[in-house]
Design a protein around this nucleic acid. Structure first.
Lengths: 338, 338
DNA sequence: TTGAAAGCGCTAACAG
DNA sequence: CTGTTAGCGCTTTCAA
């Protein structure tokens, strides 16, 4: 049986209230008594039962995180940010993976509430109004991270995708490219964030005489989709004289680069390719991937910070927090255009 | 104020015990009463307070995970395995990142105990007898995952590194290589697992007439270390006519491959390189990395399964669980030797 | 400065 | 089958 506050009290020859007071420094305790208590705690190796404490204080010091899949590199970075900042404020993280199922997201949110978490961060890759409404009713602070879908009005953290799309495109234009293909992920719905990036892309292209816009859809945004679209892209390159491809996500770019490698297409000599996200792999891969940095760690850190701020001050910030954009110029894009 | 069991009892016109019974299906309840209770629960949107429940049942349904850094790809996979299996048995995961500091590992272990976790998985990258002893005293099941250091006797999960080193080396030999460099991570201590891998490597080399063994240390096992050792390795290749390099970890191999790319050394035409681990990147990178698969997801899954088994049956399995070895033959190794 | 006692929300005997 | 009651380990009034 674990040692409890009673054991400590008995050994120190004081009441449990006194022990509680020295643990929490909640009220003055005479230094001699305090010494005795501390000694007893030390001798017994006593650690307060946080569950009991939570029950009475109504503070679990727990933050719930529902993520699509911690196995995704960027999500791991999100979670790192969350965990590290939470830790600074003495919060622990309960983690659950939904694997992209909306019903699971909702179920886990409910489980987290049962565990009395004080706040929830949802890292999703799908639109899911139902879970958002559901969590909204919990009456605890909630942050929503989704790098694929629009979360208009929801408390969230991201970069300005319009601006990012614009900047990246402009960089390619500066390199001398005119026929730049924007490779998007296929989207039935228009709640996709792609909308903004494409807007930025088009705005940049429209500024330049002789630039030819072209937006082409892949079947998704993962590595395998980038690889799979290779044949089609190759055709486009030849037919339309494309010299640079702006991929809507790093993973897609990496898949496409894999295809190019396997098919003897040289990057950036034959074609410039850039990505979006700056996942870990982007800088390890060769040629290193030119990309837009989405600061995943910071996104997590800011998200949890907003939750904690609310928990401390009751101050509720609304809407999206915009983080600075960084263009990572690397090896995969050059001015070697035809 | 959240709705409690009392509210439900009042609305349903029954006692709280009855409500408890229908929630837990712990004792028979007449179907009409049950219906009333269920209705009340639904109407109020009642969710039992797990904290209160934990306090009385002494079961938190929480598993603590202390990891070095969830940002590392393989650790994310470990945690995925842990989380997914734990979930099947209704356990939640509390996650903390130690960032490799032994004192932090110990501190977090203590915090987890305070939170009444029912088991702990420690994913470490350092030797740390102190924390092991500390957790050992908690009297809860404990699994130790460390892919760099020996955990002799401790409950753990891994592949047979001796055999893996042997098999990989043999594969290179079969490809025709004779001068194979084993690139290890620098180790002052001999509690490193490298010992086993090198043993396997040497055993394979010793079997072959004309094979020349050479074990060379990098300053560590990360991508940057692989890149940094590039100059030295290049010299070795030339001087000693090395045709293949067996890197002790994928990250090291990837770093070295990056160096090769940047310096015009072709893989596998000029040199064959293989890794160890089969991290996600190994199959995305080009050329794809030939490597030994360490099944990270499974390692996590098996670890948590052993914990849960103990929790259910009280059965304690000791020592290491060995998982099958897989040799991933890919693009980075060929028989193109001089 | 200290102790006694109530109670957080729930489960689990114990009675009935 | 149902209700009453005693805690789980702790914090926090309220008195002393």
């Amino acid at each position: 049986m674990a040692v409890t506050i009673k054991d400590v009290a008995k050994l120190a020859g004081v009441s449990i209230s006194t022990v509680s007071r020295v643990i929490n420094k909640s009220k003055p305790v005479s230094s001699e008594v305090k010494a005795k208590v501390l000694e007893a705690i030390d001798e017994l190796g006593y650690k307060p039962n946080e569950v009991a404490r939570s029950l009475v204080t109504r503070r679990s010091n727990l933050i719930g995180v529902v993520a699509t899949d911690i196995g995704r590199s960027y999500i791991a970075q999100n979670v790192r940010g969350i965990e590290e900042v939470a830790r600074m404020y003495n919060y622990d993280i309960i983690l659950s993976n939904s694997y992209g199922d909306p019903r699971t997201e909702k179920k886990f949110a409910g489980l987290l509430r049962s565990k009395q978490v004080e706040g929830i961060v949802l890292i999703s890759e799908i639109p899911n109004d139902e879970v958002i409404e559901y969590i909204g009713d919990f009456g605890i602070p909630f942050m929503y991270l989704n790098k694929y879908y629009i979360s208009s009005g929801l408390p969230s953290v991201s970069i300005d995708h319009r601006e990012a799309g614009y900047r990246m495109t402009n960089y390619l234009i500066e390199l001398g490219h005119r026929n730049i293909l924007y490779l998007t992920s296929y989207e039935g719905r228009d709640s996709s964030l792609e909308r903004y990036k494409v807007e930025g892309y088009e705005r940049a292209m429209d500024n330049v005489i002789g630039a030819r816009k072209q937006v082409y859809p892949a079947q998704g945004f993962r590595v395998e989709h980038g690889y799979a679209i290779g044949d089609e892209v190759r055709k486009l390159i030849e037919e339309d004289d494309i010299t640079a491809i702006f991929c809507c996500h790093d993973e897609l770019a990496l898949g496409l680069m894999g295809y190019c490698y396997d098919n003897g297409i040289k990057i950036p000599e034959d074609i410039s390719i850039c990505g979006y996200g700056d996942t870990k792999m982007a800088s390890i891969y060769r040629p290193q991937l030119t990309t837009i940095r989405e600061p995943y760690y910071d996104m997590g850190a800011v998200a949890i910070r907003r939750i904690i701020k609310y928990l401390n001050d009751g101050e509720l910030e609304e809407g999206n927090t915009y983080l600075p954009i960084q263009l990572m110029k690397r090896q995969s894009c050059s001015s070697n255009c035809r």
